[in-house]
Each structure stands twice: as C-alpha cells, then as structure tokens.
C-alpha cells in the first residue's frame, strides 16, 4: 500500500490555480523532500494532506485512507507552518492533551509528553507557557508534538525556517534518528539540508509537479562535483575534458565543476583526477561523488 497517493490534485483560490493536476505516489521509508520556490504550492499540498483544506478536484489517499479518516488519527502527524500552541496553557498540559486524544491514557500521557520533549531537549521547559519560548524553542516544541505516539507519517513544513544553525542541526538529527520508524515528508527551501536527509524528491513549481526523482537511484551516468580554490578555471576545464572516459564537464558556478562520466566500479577516474590536480598544483576545496540536489534539480 502506498504511503501517499495524489491523483489529479488541484486547488484553486479565487479562480487562481495554486495546485494544478498534481499526480504522485510516495512509498514509506527514507525521508521525502518537497521542494520548490515560494508560491509553488508546497504548503497548500501539506494543508490538503493534513485535511486543513479541501482540494478543488482530484483525490488523495494516505495509507489507503482518504484524508480526514479517523483511521489516520495518531498515524499521521504534522508540523504545520507557523502554527502555534495556545500561549496561555502550559506546554506539558497541551502535549498531554494531544497524547490523550491519541489514546495514551493517564500517567502514560505525561511520560509520552516528556519523552518527546526530551527528544527536542526541552524537558526543562515542560511547565513553561509557549509565549515564554524563543522562536527556535517554539519550533522544537511543535516538532515534539508531531512525534507523540510515534506516528507512521510526519509532515514537516519548513521545519528549520528561522532557526539558528545549532537548532537546525538538532532538528535534522531528530529526523534522522526517528526515520527508522517514521516516514518524514519535509518541505524546505534548504536544499543542502534536504540532501542530507532525503532520498526521494518532489519538485513543485507554480503548482505543478515538475520532477519526482530519487537522489540515490542507480543510473548509467555518474557525476563528480569538484569545487576548486582560487585557480585558473578555464585551464582546469580544458584539462578535465582531456581525461579519458569523461562525457561532459560543466562549470556550474565560479569555482565548481560537474564532471559527467559513464558509471564505473573502480576509482581510476578519481586517481587520474588527483594526479592531474597534483601535477598542476591546482588546489581543490572539495570533491563530491554525485551532484548536489540543487544541481540535480536545476541542471538543464
């Protein structure tokens, strides 16, 4: 059974199409990224999946159930973008309520609330009210509520937006740790972050599904991403093209090359590349096997 299945999903606001006939099927497993520029329809897609809004047309099923089905209570959870807890009730009392609504009774609800607060390092703030928390802490509490009862599917809409690097890293760690039991679908503008976490990627643009791909999928063509220090880039470019078995070399930014070559099992290309750099005293900054998500999505 598919995790999420969207068929011809459309949503219009005042006649303007925000989502237009989106079709995709996602399976359980590693975290899944939903990317796209502002206004691409990511939050609208998440809102439909969570049942906050109804699609204008098309259908969605989550684990075979229609959105809003009582069978999804406690199975599907989410971090809705910009949603805040009640500022006047303590964090613990609200998390306990959520746990109880999911069927975790009595003292077990408190234990569960404390467990998820522990995951986001906020047990000390359990009795505080949400209005006393910083933006980063509020976000972590909202992520904690999404993890109550270990749901099978968690939708995270911009989980690290507005967070400092340390907090963003902590969120990535949590997603990584919980991925064993939970499938996360994450929307973000931060492609580097998604690249570290996700395999499957859904790319939306102007409400349409532009690409659906797997970062790790086996392909006939392989890539190396080479980032150079301050060197004569045209000379490096020419030299790279002279190496055997290279299909294509593209300079994707001021100091970065994408080297395209037929997939091979050994490391002969890497060895030749290092020899070339050493002979010419060209210092490199990094070599990445494959392409960045940004290059994958936006290469023509």
């Amino acid at each position: 059974m598919s995790l999420i299945q969207c068929q011809q999903l459309s949503k219009n606001y005042s006649g303007k199409a925000v989502l237009s006939k989106v079709d995709f099927t996602l399976e359980s497993g590693a975290p899944i990224a939903v990317v796209g520029p502002n206004g691409a329809g990511k939050t609208t897609l998440f809102s439909i999946l969570c049942g906050y809004i109804k699609p204008t047309s098309g259908s969605v099923t989550i684990m075979g159930e229609p959105v809003g089905s009582p069978k999804l209570h406690g199975i599907l959870s989410a971090l809705p973008q910009d949603a805040q807890l009640d500022p006047d009730s303590s964090i613990l009392s609200q998390l306990r309520l959520f746990a109880e609504l999911q069927g975790i009774k009595g003292k077990a609800s408190k234990i569960e609330a404390m467990r998820v607060l522990e995951l986001v390092d906020l047990t000390k703030e359990a009795k505080a009210k949400p209005k006393s928390l910083s933006h980063g802490m509020s976000k972590r509490v909202s992520i904690a509520q999404a993890l109550i009862g270990s749901p099978k599917l968690v939708l995270l809409d911009e989980p690290t937006a507005g967070l400092d690097p340390a907090n963003a890293r902590r969120i990535r760690q949590i997603v990584s740790e919980q991925s064993e039991h939970t499938t996360f679908v994450i929307s973000s503008h931060n492609l580097d972050e998604l690249e570290k976490l996700c395999d499957q990627v859904i790319y939306l643009e102007e409400g349409k599904l532009k690409q659906a791909l797997s970062i790790q999928s086996a392909q006939e063509i392989d890539y190396l991403t080479l980032v150079m220090k301050k060197v004569d880039m045209p000379s490096v470019h020419q030299a790279l093209l002279g190496l055997p078995n290279i299909t294509k070399v593209t300079q994707s930014s001021d100091h970065q090359f994408i080297i395209e070559y037929p997939t091979q099992e050994d490391f002969s290309l890497e060895q030749q590349l290092f020899n070339l750099l050493a002979e010419n005293q060209w210092h490199y900054k990094s070599i990445l096997k494959g392409r960045t998500l940004e290059d994958t999505l936006f290469s023509s």
Partner: peptide, 30 residues
C-alpha cells in the same frame, strides 16, 4: 516503535477530553 502507540479513542471520548481541557484552561489561564 514506541510502546505507547495506542488506538484512537471514540468521538465521544474526544468530546469529553476536549471539554475537560476547556474547563481546566478557563480556570488556569490569565
């Protein structure tokens, strides 16, 4: 998977839980 995973209560239980929370919130919030 966490051992606390539980089946979702009935609609009437949910109404009771939410109503109780409203009552306690009313007399504890500023």
């Amino acid at each position: 998977m966490n051992s606390l995973t539980a089946s979702s209560p009935s609609g009437i239980t949910h109404i009771w839980q939410l109503a109780k929370f409203e009552l306690s919130k009313r007399f504890s919030s500023r």
